[in-house]
Every structure is written in structure tokens, then in C-alpha cells.
Nucleic acid binder design. Structure first.
Lengths: 343, 343
DNA sequence: TAAAACTATGTTAGCGCTAACATGGTAGCG
DNA sequence: CGCTACCATGTTAGCGCTAACATAGTTTTA
């Protein structure tokens, strides 16, 4: 009798108080409660206080799913990275998270494991969540993914690398970074330099750096041998890389590693083998992770502004979401050659 | 005329095809499309093929927000960790992600930065997303959080440490780990052992290890001095820790660090200062990160099964979600003393 | 002082999907 | 052959919230 339900059908009621119940208890309408919570300035101060007190009293937790459906947008930001094992992405994520959370957005994190097909699947799923924006690492996507995204009308931010982006872009020039390090090695008079990377078909940014590196060596009339490992950046892989170089290119005087994990693994292994760095062989990396700066000698590397990249990317996306004018679609965050004692 | 809308009001139509449109195009009802996608075995094979082809043709992407609202559950798992800077949590997350994604669940990641109040806020928000389960690091929560969770009827998994949990629990005994390392150090004849931790009020598991450590030293009639750094686990902080020990406890013969990052930072700094390990001073850590196993000498540490912990936690939660019987609510994943050359 | 503009709140109608129940057809069985 | 059982599909009614429009009261403006 007291139940206003017209039908006898029951749906699983979740026990949780609803907005309507809060409204009834506070003696206002549902929309007023909604406004008190989501747009406080549109509600009279006294009403607002009364409503918020009721919310508190009933322990009301807003159903964000319902809110998102009604408003056709969620405060989710889809973030897609190729790996969690690499500290670089963690730092970018950290920068993104900090900035987005401050504005009340929640990150939906996806990990592709460097698989472009998985990226597509993840993006499909994420679009189903009515995300407010998408941040993804890199400019390369599958055809299906590309066409899915071109029909999507929310901000898309591609980070890490610089180039012809779908929408917004914050990153750095990996070709140029490769060139930069190669030039440094040549300037230091190394003449037999081996590049060591891992899974370069998947970690194609490392391949871009290799291409820049090769360009400079060729221009100087030198060979540009390369060794590709089949295990992604890790200290272990770096140790393996060193050993491969020693056996295949015994006359090598320097190794340019695709990242700091590999380089540091090699450096530590070399020291364990009793070699001196850079006397017996010089070692260079990429990323500028703290690790490389704590070994002796310090690792020569290229520092990319990782947290900054995340922060900047988030800020640009937020600008767009606030419907502010976006002055530049592309931001080059640059990089910095850190010359340590290892070269 | 062709618009079936009864009112002239328009809502922001998202252009995206809806389930109903797919149904119309395929000549079936909406619920059949829903079933073809979510419970294929409940639809005749021929119908299913027809529907899925239509889905493909129209580029239909299911609106997961609407689905979650209607079914009062999302395929989200809330995961809350105290830090992303620590590799340990990354590995746990990786283990969780792998296992949950295979079953079609999406992780909602929250980072508390070791702030118990932020944990409460995050959990509140996540409950608003109708998550299927919650995985959180640690057993300590704010009062408000605790009462929120006891009224929640979905699986709750507390990881990392072992003890009196709200629901499910996968972890290890940090007191015992601290005792274990202290016993090892005593067995190696070190008699002046300093414990070095960082922010022990927030990283209270490190404090638990210290308490175990202190217990063993006191039982042996020894002092158990401790130094607390104000910067969470990093190589830099470890280097600082070493210097503090050298100046405040010049007679110390061993340092027990709260984690491998600190320990390795100290080891590398000691070497840069020309000290020998363990001759001048012994160093021990906790976690068993690869890093510590690549320095020379290898770091003595305690290995926790991190990815495993994530995987096991996810499996237990999945069991519960499948309404399978959960035989044990508490799982001790244990740990392993790794004796390197640093002690 | 009447019209315009603004403020505070309410009413109505969905957002796109799925749970629950309903229906009609086919098979299985004694 | 009449019964139950089951299979495939459909109908109906919401899930809990917010956009859009509506309304009444108050202030500003010409």
C-alpha cells in the first residue's frame, strides 16, 4: 500500500539511498539535490546546506553510472600505454593522473603490451564508457582504430612522439634524439658504435632513434651495426645485449642502448666482468631515469621530461574540455643530453 | 513524421548507433541483440550470426554505461594502491590486470599517495561506479571507509599484508619478514645494525618490519636504532640514508633498509665514496627487485612474490564473483630470504 | 511602472540498456 | 495425445540520474 510501485515486478534494489530519497528527506525535488552536488552555485546557500546535510546523514553515494547515462558523458579519461614495466610510462601516467584528478576526472588505464590490435580493442571498450577524452601513447594505430577515432568527437591526445596527430599532440622527436646521441658519441671519438634495442617492431620509437643514429653514422662514413634483443627493456636484457656485442663486434668501442634499463644492465654487467667504463667500452642510454644517474660512472643518456609530458598533455586536454581555445595542437617537450662518465 | 519521438525536446543524440537501431536493421528485437552480444549461447546460431554481422556493419559500440545502469553492475574492479612510484605496486597491478582483463573486467586504478583519507574518497567514488569488486593495498582504513565497506556487499580483497581483513586477504607477514632479516644479520655476526626507513607513519608496513627487526635485536640484548627519512623509497633517499648512518652511528656495521630502492641507492653511493660492501658496512633491503640483483655485490634482501600476489588476489576475487565457494579467505604468499654478497 | 532580466526551483521526459515475465513453438515421454 | 519441459524470442518496465523547458518570485532597467 505504501509502495508507490505500479507493478509487482521487482528489480534488484541496491539498498543504497537514491537521489530521490535524499530529495524527499530534504523536502526538495531531485533536480535540486543534483544541482546542490554538481553545480552548487546554482542553488541558494540555505537550500544547499540543508541538502548536503541530508546527503551526509543518509550516507548517499551518487550513482555515477546513472549520471553518466543521463548526461551522455562520464568523467573518465581513457589512458592507453604500451607497457607498465617501463618506468617512463609510469611517470607519464603519474603526471596525467595528478592533473586530471585535481579536476575530478578519473583515469581508465589500459595496457596494450605494445600490441596495436589490443589498442583497438581497448579503445572500443573505453568509448563504450563515454569517456571525456582519450590519451594514448604514440601515433601509430590500426586502420580500424583510426577510423573509429576520426568519427569520435571528443579530445584525443597522442603523447610520447611528435608528428602528424589525429588531434592533440605532446611529445618529442625521437629521430632527433637518436641523432643527438650519435653525434655526441662521434664527438667523443668513438668510431665503432653498436646500437642495441629490443623488439624494435613493437617499440618503434626505439627504432626511430636508431634511424636517427644510423643517419649520423652513415653521414660520417661509418657503419651502423644493430643488435635486436627479443626481451623488452630490463636490466637482464641489457646484460645479454652487452654480451652479444662483445662476441659479435669485439672491436666495438661504444654501445648506444635503446633505453636506460638496457644500458644500466649492461653497465652493471660490464663492471661485474671487471671491465672499465668507458675505457673498455662506452655506454649510452635513453630516458634519463634516476637509476642511470646513481651508478658510477653516471650514465650518459637523454632525459625526456616525462612527468611534465603527462602534466602538459593533461592540461591541454582540460583546456579543450573547458571549451577554451587551444592555441597549439602540437607541443614539442624536447629533450636534454645528459653527459655522464660512461662515454 | 518518420521520427517516432513524441515530444519536440531533443537530447544530445550521440550519432552512435544504438542497440535498437541494430535490432531494427537485423529484424529482431533489442533484447535479442543484447543476448547475442552478452550471452551468445542463449540465441539461435543463425540469428546470432545475422545480428553480429549487423553489429559489424553499423560499427555498433555497446554503451557500457547504459548496460551497467540497467544491470546494476559494471565490469569494473576498483584497485587502490598507495603509490605508483614503487615498482612493487606496479607488479601487483600487472598481475591483477592480466588476470582480470582475461575475464573481461576493467581495472579502475586509484592512487592514495599513502593518504588514508584519499583512500576513502577514492572508494566512495568507485562505489558510485557500481564496481564488481574492490582490491585495496593494506588493512588500515579510516573509520568512515570501514563503515562504508562493511555495508557493501561485493567482494573486497585486501592485499600486501596479512591479518584481520574485511573479507578476502592475500599477503605476507611483514613483522616476520623484519624478524627474518634481523636474524640473518645477527647470524652474520653484525652487532651494530641500524634500520633505515622512510615516512614510516604512512608506509606502516615498513614500520611493521622494523618492529619485527627490533624485537629480534632486543631479544639478543642489542640496541635497535632507527633513522627515518622524509622522502619515500628512492635511490636518492637511500644515498641520504647512508650518509645519515655514517654520521650518526659511525660504528654501525650493517644497515637494514626498508626497501630495495633505499638499499641500492645506499650501496651505489657507498661505492662512489670508495667504501667496500660488506667490508666497511653491510646492506640489506626488502622486496627482491631485479635492480638489487644486478649490482655487485648482489643485494641481500627478501623477495615477495609480487606479480603472484596480484594474480592470486584476482583469482580469488573471480572465484567469488563466479559464486564459487571460497575455501580460504586468507592466503599467505610468504617470502624468501635472498642472501647476496652485500651482507 | 511595465517590461525585461535574472534567480531559485520544479516538471517532464528520456539516456540506452537489461531483468523479469510472457508467449509460442518444438520436442520428449508415458 | 495430453502433459511437462525446454528453447528462442518478444514485451514491458524500469535502472538513477540530468537536459530541457516551465514557472513563480524578485530585481533591474528604461
Amino acid at each position: 500500500m505504501s509502495d508507490k510501485r505500479k507493478s509487482t515486478r521487482r528489480r534488484r534494489g541496491s539498498e543504497q539511498p537514491t537521489l530521490q530519497q535524499v530529495a524527499d528527506a530534504a523536502g526538495v525535488s531531485a533536480i535540486t539535490v543534483s544541482r546542490a552536488l554538481n553545480a552548487p552555485e546554482r542553488v541558494n546557500a540555505a537550500t544547499r546546506i540543508k541538502v548536503l546535510a541530508t546527503v551526509e546523514r543518509l550516507g548517499y553515494v551518487p550513482n555515477l553510472v546513472a549520471g553518466s547515462l543521463a548526461s551522455a558523458r562520464s568523467r573518465f579519461i581513457a589512458v592507453i600505454v604500451p607497457s607498465l614495466a617501463n618506468a617512463v610510462f609510469i611517470e607519464v601516467i603519474h603526471g596525467l593522473q595528478e592533473t586530471f584528478e585535481r579536476e575530478g576526472y578519473q583515469i581508465l588505464l589500459g595496457n596494450t603490451d605494445y600490441d596495436i590490435e589490443r589498442e583497438y580493442q581497448l579503445i572500443r571498450t573505453f568509448l563504450g564508457w563515454s569517456c571525456s577524452a582519450l590519451v594514448t601513447a604514440g601515433l601509430r594505430h590500426s586502420e580500424a582504430c583510426r577510423s573509429l577515432l576520426t568519427h569520435w568527437d571528443k579530445p584525443i591526445m597522442e603523447v610520447m612522439e611528435l608528428g602528424d596527430a589525429l588531434d592533440l599532440n605532446v611529445g618529442l622527436d625521437h629521430h632527433e634524439a637518436g641523432r643527438c646521441m650519435a653525434r655526441h658519441l662521434l664527438a667523443q671519438q668513438y668510431r665503432s658504435v653498436v646500437y642495441v634495442g629490443a623488439c624494435l617492431d613493437r617499440d618503434y620509437r626505439a627504432r626511430m632513434r636508431f634511424e636517427g643514429h644510423r643517419e649520423v653514422l652513415h653521414a660520417a662514413g661509418l657503419e651502423a651495426p644493430m643488435i635486436e634483443l627479443d626481451q623488452l627493456g630490463s636490466l637482464d636484457a641489457g646484460a645479454t645485449g652487452l654480451e652479444r656485442v662483445l662476441s659479435r663486434y669485439p672491436s666495438a668501442d661504444a654501445i648506444h642502448f635503446a633505453n636506460d634499463d638496457l644500458a644500466t644492465g649492461a653497465l652493471l654487467r660490464a663492471q661485474r666482468l671487471g671491465m672499465t667504463i668507458p675505457g673498455d667500452i662506452a655506454i649510452a642510454g635513453f630516458n634519463g631515469l634516476p637509476l642511470g644517474q646513481h651508478v658510477t660512472p653516471r650514465l650518459t643518456t637523454i632525459r625526456s621530461p616525462r612527468e611534465n609530458m603527462g602534466r602538459l598533455a593533461a592540461e591541454e586536454v582540460l583546456k579543450r574540455l573547458d571549451a577554451k581555445r587551444v592555441t597549439r595542437r602540437r607541443h614539442d617537450v624536447g629533450f636534454e643530453l645528459l653527459v655522464g662518465g660512461s662515454t
